[in-house]
Design a protein around this nucleic acid. Structure first.
Lengths: 152, 152
DNA sequence: TAGACTCGTCAACATGATTGACCAAAAAGG
DNA sequence: CCTTTTTGGTCAATCATGTTGACGAGTCTA
């Protein structure tokens, strides 16, 4: 496999996974959620965050993060609340609908993952995941920086 | 590995690879080329293509493909020429600079790939690539559609 | 030759990001 | 305390990339 082919296949695998997930989400009551929203929701899930925190976790400017929150709030996935301890801050929290979406996304991805494992064989799939984990875990190779994304 | 983690690691690996490549390209005389341009150049490389052909290969509208060609032409990577056999068509071909960029990108990706292989061990890396290839080769799993991208 | 199709482009608009400017609130330091 | 600096959030303008829709000019075909 050439370096270029490797890159294309990585992108293709990711894209297919995410496209399949969103097609399923659309069928199950969430037709208007976009891939970027999922990342934002996952970053919000652990607990109330401020816009600046969210921006740092997503690796974008605070303006971009703020707009994403606007969209998610408009669609009913998150809410903003004032922070009684700091009048500058506006805390973002998931709504029940947001939690539902997150749970559903997790289920679907889990199912897609097992379908992939079945398709190529469990052992082969395990070896694939092992290699991918090693590559993206900061082992010093050019794939190392992915850690920030996974850990966020 | 959860399904969500799998998706994040796939994206992370791709992103790191491409970011590293573009950082290196910028250092070596091509600071203004963007990821999307690389895909377009690869689609143009095999020979003169029309805007419509290019659009089909990239999976975008012909308008979008036309704009990408405008940008690439402005940066000196491709040129447009009239087709003497059909006055509607405008053929797009690589310039020497475009061919140079493509060769350089290939070299860099190759080097990044071997660095990754060294970092995690050649056997582990081979198993990883084997699984990735199987998943994205249309084996029936949810990763199957990636084929169109690799083959384009 | 008339109608249908193809190629490229113009215009308007949607999304998601950026930079720069700014105000208000909080923290830090004298 | 009171001034200075830092931080959080937002407004505005802009860029990059994509989309639809419309359309004129050239080619193909029945």
């Amino acid at each position: 496999m050439s370096g270029g082919e490797l890159a294309l296949r990585l992108l293709g695998a990711f894209r297919d996974l995410v496209d399949a997930m969103h097609a399923e989400l659309a069928r199950r009551g969430h037709p208007d959620v976009r891939p970027g929203h999922g990342f934002a929701l996952q970053a919000i899930a652990p607990g109330p965050v401020t816009g600046s925190e969210l921006a740092a976790r997503l690796g974008v400017t605070k303006q971009a993060a703020g707009r994403t929150v606007d969209v998610l709030a408009g669609r009913g996935y998150v809410e903003r609340a004032d922070d009684p301890a700091d009048a500058r801050r506006r805390l973002v929290v998931l709504t029940p609908r947001g939690r539902e979406l997150l749970a559903l996304s997790g289920e679907i991805l889990e199912r897609l993952r097992s379908e992939g494992a079945t398709a190529v064989g469990p052992e082969r799939f395990a070896a694939f995941e092992d290699g991918l984990r090693a590559l993206t875990d900061g082992g010093g190779g050019p794939f190392a920086a992915a850690g920030w994304f996974v850990s966020s």
